[in-house]
Design a protein around this nucleic acid. Sequence first.
RNA 1: GCCCGGGUGGCGGAACUGGUAGACGCAAGGGACUUAAAAUCCCUCGGGAGCAAUCCUGUACGAGUUCGAUUCUCGUCCCGGGUACCA
Length: 851
Amino acid sequence: MEKQYVPKEVEQKWQQNWQQTQAFRVTEDSEKPKFYLLEMFPYPSGRIHMGHVRNYAIGDVVARFKRMQGFNVLHPMGWDAFGMPAENAAIEHGTHPKKWTYENIASMREQLKRMGLSYDWQREFATCDPEYSRWEQLIFLKMLEAGLAYKKGSSVNWCPDCQTVLANEQVEDGSCWRCDNLVEQKELDQWFFKITDYADELLEGTDKLPGWPERVLAMQRNWIGKSYGCEIEFPVADKETKIKVFTTRPDTLFGATFMSLAPEHPLVKSLISAEQQGAVADFIAQVERQDKIQRTSGELEKLGVFTGSYAINPLTGDQIPVFLANFVLMDYGTGAVMAVPAHDQRDFEFARKYELPIRVVIQPEGESLVAETMDAAHTGTGLLVNSGQFDGIENEAAKEQIADYLDSRGEGRKTINYRLRDWGVSRQRYWGTPIPIIYCETCGAVPVPEKDLPVLLPEDVELTGEGGSPLARHQDFLQVACPKCSQPARRESDTFDTFVESSWYFARYACPDYQNAPLDKKAANYWLPVDQYIGGIEHAVMHLLYARFFTKVLRDLNMLDVDEPFTNLLTQGMVCMETQRCAEHGWLYPEQISSGNCTLCGRPAELGRTEKMSKSKKNVVDPNLLIEQYGADTARLFSLFAAPPEKDLEWNEQGVEGCARFLGRVWRAVCDNLELIADVEVARTAEGAAAELRRKTHQTIKKVTEDIDGRFHFNTAIAAVMELVNAIYAFKLGQQHPEVLREALEAVVRLLNPFVPHASEELWQMLGHQQSVEAAGWPAFDAAALVADELTLVVQVNGKVRGKIEVPAAAEKAEIEAAAQADPNVQRYIEGKQIRKVIVVPKRLINIVVA
RNA sequence: GCCCGGGUGGCGGAACUGGUAGACGCAAGGGACUUAAAAUCCCUCGGGAGCAAUCCUGUACGAGUUCGAUUCUCGUCCCGGGUACCA
């Protein structure tokens, strides 16, 4: 008899079944085509949040859909397990990062399993596992051999009080986020990866990724920031030295009337004249006091100081003053800029401020600029003037010609400049992968021999947040014999940026237990590239660019044969929620508010901005509560039905009820009809009124297939199934046509499987099937069933809807026109008027144009 | 500033290549069932006029192209994201 829908029981049953049968394990020796589906792995922060639910629900729909379509689907899960929150927890609560991390993983794994996600759990790993570190360290050693990793001095944000390095986001208004002391810039020796060697390939690759969203590609292109220009050498008057500048506008060289150098420029010392000594020293001290963020904030006042030296413009021969300027950056271009005030807004303002000459060298068409009366720089196109032999040439052409001329005289050359910098990977932190290097006084930086890998993190450390990295104070860890000369040496105490781990984890999933190398080339080549990658838009540049870089490095190290890691990318929107705060207690969790008041003090809660759900703002919803109350299937369905995946989602639980109700409706539709359809086969054809339900069934199959495959419009796919269920409820001919009813019900159950797999399996079993619904495969639509005998056409007069007509599907144009004109309401509008034109859009409408 | 998105009922959203604007769901209102409630089932639901048939109006705003525009073009306003003294 009728069986109640109890989500908890159904979900437990099927989750156990999947675990016991290892339903989602895959191997490389399959007859089926492979499909690698991956969602960005989570940081084990402790609890699953709504963003995870959304991300993994989306992924699981695709995984189950592809599996039903007959693909050999790799769908793995793991943990991005190194990072600062573990250290902060240790500082605040005294728990060891390792313990904290693995405990979090254990509880999050349980939460994910309760969602019924179809992962191959055999392949699970955490990036803090020693096995993973071992292979990451080996990749680093190979990069070192290949010249792709190197060490250089670089400035970092440094808190002198905490004795530690701060990330940019840990600097608040120039002060340390923990102790409020002023942050300084400190020069440290750090390891870098030569991502700039791959700048061109990474850029060109953006044109070969049609499966990526255009905006992500645009962001990556901007980030790489390739610009074509020219390096020009300016001799310094009365000195042997030359200053090299980079410019994208060699066409304006005749207008260069002064020069601006970065205060850190290595030539600065040799350029300062005796009388400018004091002013320059003051200026440099002032700039040094500003941290990186202030320095590049844009609102900073443009300041400069004259060095006392002059450079010679190679084309005009004029002596031009050399300034230091706070807006010139040492790490872009050459750290020196030729200033053309007439044609660069920044130089224009600087020239006006310090009363420097302005020389117009490009005249826009139909205007004649005069330096004295200009109130802004002219940065557009025009013809060259005041430019000697180049006068009258269009400035775009002059870029080439002047560059060639300089080249022929040995005073400059065309160059390409990138905004992209090499990737600094050293972190002065404990909870990360140790960089496998040993420093020896005689042998220098010596790689740890492969046989000694992995370099393990010592566990007996004290984390206080002060005095720098605990590794740098851990003598047992630090003191080691030099692998080359056996003399006492010192181990590197820095660890890798955690982006290194996430740059190759997707490849390790192909062979998580492989013992001989980072990758089993055969397995990796079978599975890679990832066919569909799914994750948050916030990783559009960093993670996705680093992963692309690493893939190319692994290829060049002969560990892998693919060029790009992710063929198709789906960037999912954020889950947002309004923030609330109390005047006394700060941010409030939603459950700390009752009827608009803070439950701690009774004051009214103030409504804040709607923002991405985050622990720090306390605007979070615990998905567990949702799963407890409604079950995993409803939680999954709801997160998919609320909005298309790429859109931001403002959290609102009002729709949950509707999804739960819908599943109840599906359940009852099957249960209530079980007896009726017990012994019938699914329909192959249908006639008369029954054909309508059959048509709806096959239309739905078609629409859901198209919505999921490639478009990811899960909300409309679900809506289509809802329509079919509504049609089943409205179907009054079940007694006469049980086979049509069975076909419709089976279609609903199969189409819903990717969304609500537990309920689907249970219903499929109730429908009398031995094998699983997943094994039953994805339904195909019958094109013949889609064809209707009669069509409803809209009749317009002059573009306005005036009626609807029913015509046979095979009706000719003339027949349709006659029927349209016979419609009484249509006649009111065409009566006595001349018909100018009749437009018939097949299967849709007819538009009668009258005078 | 520059580069990407986006703006549709009370709400989330739909309309795929220019062809019935508002699918599906939520909320709201009404009804059936019930001693009652819950659950369930059915109906109404952009705004305005009308007893009704039906008509007018409506996709941020203003123009344009078209037989026909939420969709294409131009301009304006607003919102979101990215990025920035980038030479």
